[in-house]
Amino acid sequence: MNTNLQGRAFVFGNNVDTDQIYPGRFVQYTDVEDVAKYAMHGVDPEFIHTVKQGDIIVAGTNFGCGSSREHAAITLKAVGVGAIIAESFGRIFYRNAINLALPLIVCPHILKYVQSRDSLLVDLKSGTISNEKGILITAEPLSPYVMSILEAGGIKPLVRAQLLRGA
């Protein structure tokens, strides 16, 4: 896994809930390709037409609050979001995203430093974030356990590998 990420920033505000990330009216879709069509639909219906592989969502506090539906994390992973940087996350969304190997980075005051479409460089191991303007921000680095989940490609592949090693 590449721990140095680069992508354009898509900036959102505070309290973006799971129903904005993936509206409940689309919950009947279970195929990843269908789920991906509705990423961020509740807050920006054009998001899926402009996001590119590796782009980075930047948000304020409480990103992913709301329901425990895993669809919210699945849809962002499916459209190629490389990471999400927010001032804070909803607890269940955080766990769902990490379990799917979607990097989430907590960075207080990130909205003061990043604007939509800024090009960002993110070092997951050190927690440093920089943009093309030369601004360097230090976020909370990911724990070794979270890094092991991300490097394995998610919690299921990690557990599978651990079981095979122990067998």
Rank of each mutant, 00 (worst) to 15 (best):
F63W: 08
D34M: 10
K133P: 06
R95K: 15
K77E: 00
V106I: 15
K112Y: 12
V106W: 03
H71D: 03
N2M: 13
F47T: 09
L76I: 06
G134R: 02
Q28N: 15
S143R: 04
L136N: 04
E70N: 05
L136W: 03
G66W: 11
H49P: 00
Y38L: 05
I48V: 15
E140M: 12
T50Y: 14
P45M: 06
A101W: 00
M147R: 07
H71Q: 13
L111Y: 04
T50F: 12
K77V: 01
C65R: 07
G90V: 02
A59S: 14
D118W: 04
K37R: 15
N99S: 10
G7E: 06
R160W: 08
E33C: 00
E70P: 06
Y113K: 13
E33Y: 04
A139V: 07
G80A: 07
K125I: 12
V106S: 12
Y38R: 05
A9T: 05
A72K: 00
G153Q: 05
T30C: 06
Q115C: 08
K77A: 04
V27C: 08
F12G: 02
A152R: 07
F10A: 03
V58C: 11
T18R: 02
G134E: 10
Y94W: 12
V159D: 04
L111W: 04
M40Y: 05
F10C: 02
D55G: 12
T18S: 10
L111F: 04
R117H: 14
G134K: 04
I129S: 12
A9D: 08
R91W: 10
D44F: 04
E33K: 07
G80P: 10
L158Q: 05
I98F: 06
D19I: 04
K156H: 01
D34V: 00
V11T: 13
V43R: 09
S143L: 07
V122Q: 06
N96Y: 02
T128P: 06
V106R: 14
G60N: 10
P23V: 11
N99M: 02
P141D: 14
E140Q: 15
R95M: 11
V51A: 10
T3F: 13
V106G: 01
F47R: 05
S126C: 09
S68W: 11
I84L: 01
E33N: 13
L102D: 00
I129A: 13
T75E: 00
V79H: 06
L100S: 01
S130V: 06
S148F: 03
H109M: 05
D55N: 15
R25G: 03
V11R: 09
R95S: 09
S88T: 07
T138D: 11
N14C: 12
R160N: 12
A167E: 13
I92T: 08
A72C: 11
I84F: 01
L150V: 08
S116N: 15
Y22M: 15
R91F: 08
S67H: 01
V43Y: 06
H71C: 05
V51K: 02
H71Y: 09
M147A: 11
A167Q: 13
G66Y: 10
V43K: 04
G24L: 11
A78H: 07
Y38P: 02
V81G: 01
N96L: 07
A86C: 08
G153E: 03
L102W: 01
L76S: 05
E151I: 01
R25P: 01
D44E: 15
I92M: 01
A36G: 04
L142T: 10
G134S: 09
D31A: 11
S143N: 11
I105M: 11
N62C: 09
Y145T: 10
Q53M: 14
L76M: 15
P103N: 09
